[in-house]
């Protein structure tokens, strides 16, 4: 038996809107630790890792580890039917073939339940090694989204370079080139507007903007985004989900042949 009650149901709505276009089907894993997902996009270029820790739920019952295969588009459709202030409860029986999403309005005057069929998904779980990244950039998530959107009107790829000067985002296309440099800025009154650059070694990597733009659909989840880079390794773009977990996107770099 599984029963997970999330008071801030909008978090799950936002998570689904962030990943439904990147990943079609995925297994949600439920254990004592929390509710998690790891999935790749169909071309195996990007990997999504979601964790919602059990402590973040108002009620968390998971009698045994359970893996539930879901079509993310269908799950997003169902969660779209929940109000932004609704409490969302996820329920499933061990060995059952469906999952129920229950939505309660804050004053309990409306209760809805949506039942969705589960599916068998053969998924490959990848081990993500602990990595000391050469550069970690923390910046406002809206600023990062704006940069990715703007650059994608000029080119298809972004070269991200971190130096002592700051972080540079560059692209080139048929019509010309673009460079955007963000410098460290910790002097702002509001911590959510800060840009913080931790650099061990200068690093420079190229990525497909199409994927970066897809990741920025998670912008409503967090005011800040963390971009972690190391030479010849996938970049990690992380959005924290309140105090309860994270949504991380890993993207393989473009490599010179």
């Amino acid at each position: 038996m599984l029963e997970l009650r999330l008071v801030q149901g909008s978090l799950l709505k936002k998570v689904m809107e962030s990943i439904k276009d990147l990943v079609n089907d995925a297994n949600f894993d439920c254990s004592a630790t929390g509710f998690s997902l790891q999935a790749m996009d169909s071309s195996h270029v990007a990997l999504v890792s979601l964790l919602l820790r059990s402590e973040g739920f108002e009620h968390y019952r998971c009698d045994r580890n359970l893996s539930m295969g879901m079509n993310l588009g269908n799950m997003a459709k169902m969660l779209k039917c929940a109000g932004n202030d609704d409490i969302v409860t996820i329920k499933a029986d061990d060995g059952g073939d469906c999952v129920t999403f229950m939505f309660e309005s804050p004053n309990q005057d409306k209760i809805a339940d949506f039942e969705m069929k589960l599916m068998d998904i053969d998924s490959e779980h990848l081990g993500i090694p602990e990595t000391e990244y050469e550069a970690i950039v923390r910046m406002p998530s809206s600023e990062f989204a704006r940069i990715c959107k703007d650059l994608s009107t000029i080119g298809d790829t972004v070269l991200i370079s971190v130096t002592k000067e700051g972080v540079r985002f560059s692209t080139k296309g048929d019509i010309g080139t673009a460079n955007i440099v963000c410098r460290q800025n910790t002097s702002v009154d509001k911590p959510e507007e800060a840009t913080i650059i931790e650099m061990e070694t200068p690093v420079s990597l190229t990525f497909a903007l199409r994927y970066m733009n897809s990741f920025t659909k998670a912008t409503p989840l967090a005011t800040q985004v963390t971009v972690s880079l190391s030479s010849e390794l996938p970049v990690v773009v992380e959005y924290k989900i309140g105090e309860m977990g994270y949504l991380r996107f890993y993207l393989a770099p473009k490599i010179e042949e």
Binding site: V45, L126, G127, L233, P234, K254, E256
Partner: peptide, 14 residues
């Protein structure tokens, strides 16, 4: 043009 890497060449199956 640089070639798109595959995530499975960085992270191994467990």
């Amino acid at each position: 043009d640089p070639k798109q890497g595959n995530i499975m060449s960085f992270f191994k199956k467990v």
